[in-house]
Design a protein around this nucleic acid. Structure first.
Lengths: 199, 199
DNA sequence: CGTGCCTGAGACAATAGTGTCTCAGGCGCT
DNA sequence: AGCGCCTGAGACACTATTGTCTCAGGCACG
């Protein structure tokens, strides 16, 4: 069944998330199967992580599709994107927490194309005036990604509930942390007060 | 000389940043010393990473001190904090990219106290009306940290220059990605348009 | 009930990483 | 030059991890 494989991939991804350098034994234990089974299904360890990352990338594509980031109104798509962002966060986390992944060109390319897709989304939002145009779209991409990740970190650390994530991410990403009052006059002395420190 | 050790720690931190699971041999090569020397100075691998992480935490404390996040006006301190944030980003990155670090209670405690210190900074900002009060301060902490990290990722990937980082982080964190126009009416249909997707 | 299939458990060799040691060479100092 | 001191290179045993194999047990199927 494909569903079995899906569950297994999910477990493996979870194990790798909590410890990217886990041994096959640990991963097998976490996934509830034996090390031998892992080998029978995936082959070696490298193939396993490659399959897992590939699956995560597929999930991301699916999430992007479901959110309609290519076609729907940007702000609506944005909300749908962060509505259910755990898989997205997990993917981003693993994909950036594994520098040695750069040695697998195919995954590297798929990750880049995923970034590019998100970037196009932000460009679209900038063009239609929803997103500010004075920041590089790639930065908006990274900024969103990192905050989705850290929001789930917040949940994992017990500082917020899973249901709070969309609201928190939405508020921080879209509106920033400045209060409305301060927002109108962000910095009376200019972009940076002239460096008081000296030590 | 303390300076030698500092340089070495910096190199080791850099090596661990580009590959958290690097072997002592790789780290030694990256640091430009022999594996034996690494052992003579730090002892085992565990002691080495512990020393490195401890040093990174010290650097963070120093950065926080220099920025004056405990006492100075929050928006000025904020600007100073992100002004020179590479070390901060590196520290945060390593400290969250190493889940097995949780097995070293001392470092865990120091990391938590660092988070708490940043959180107090945001609480102070909220109390004095600079930062919005409708978000948990701990979320502001994580949000800032993640964006500092991803900004340096942006630089590393070649999508921005190091000198852009403060401006990018400042804009995204403080003001968000919404355009001014959209900001006044963020979402005409409510917080989330009623879930068009169905598949 | 018997058969085939899949899984877990364990054993095994091969490999990579680690901790430790020794030795030779470079460098500053007297 | 002679003397320490430190470093790099290499060798070594030890351990963890990996890839592979075999065997026994469970389970669905006819």
């Amino acid at each position: 069944m494909e569903s079995d494989r899906e569950k297994l991939l999910q477990e493996v991804a979870g194990a790798l998330t909590s410890n990217p350098g886990a041994s096959t034994g640990e991963i097998a234990a976490a996934a509830g199967v034996s090390r031998a089974t892992l080998h029978r299904i995936f082959g070696g360890r490298d193939e396993m992580v490659e399959a897992t990352y590939g699956w995560l990338l597929e999930q991301c594509d699916r999430i992007f599709d479901a959110a309609g980031i290519d076609t729907d109104p940007v702000l609506e798509a944005f909300d749908r994107l962060i509505e259910d962002s755990y898989l997205l966060a997990q993917s981003l986390w693993l994909l950036i927490a594994t520098p040695q992944l750069e040695k697998v060109p195919e995954l590297q390319a798929r990750l880049e194309s995923q970034d590019a897709r998100l970037e196009r989304f932000f460009v679209r939002g900038q063009d239609e005036g929803s997103f500010r145009g004075d920041l590089p779209p790639r930065w908006l991409t990274y900024s969103l990604g990192s905050q989705v990740m850290s929001a789930w970190y917040l949940v994992g650390d017990g500082f917020a509930g899973a249901r709070d994530v969309p609201r928190l991410v939405r508020a921080a990403v879209l509106e920033g942390v400045l209060s409305d009052a301060a927002g109108s006059a962000p910095d009376p002395t200019g972009p940076v007060s002239p460096r008081t420190r000296e030590s």
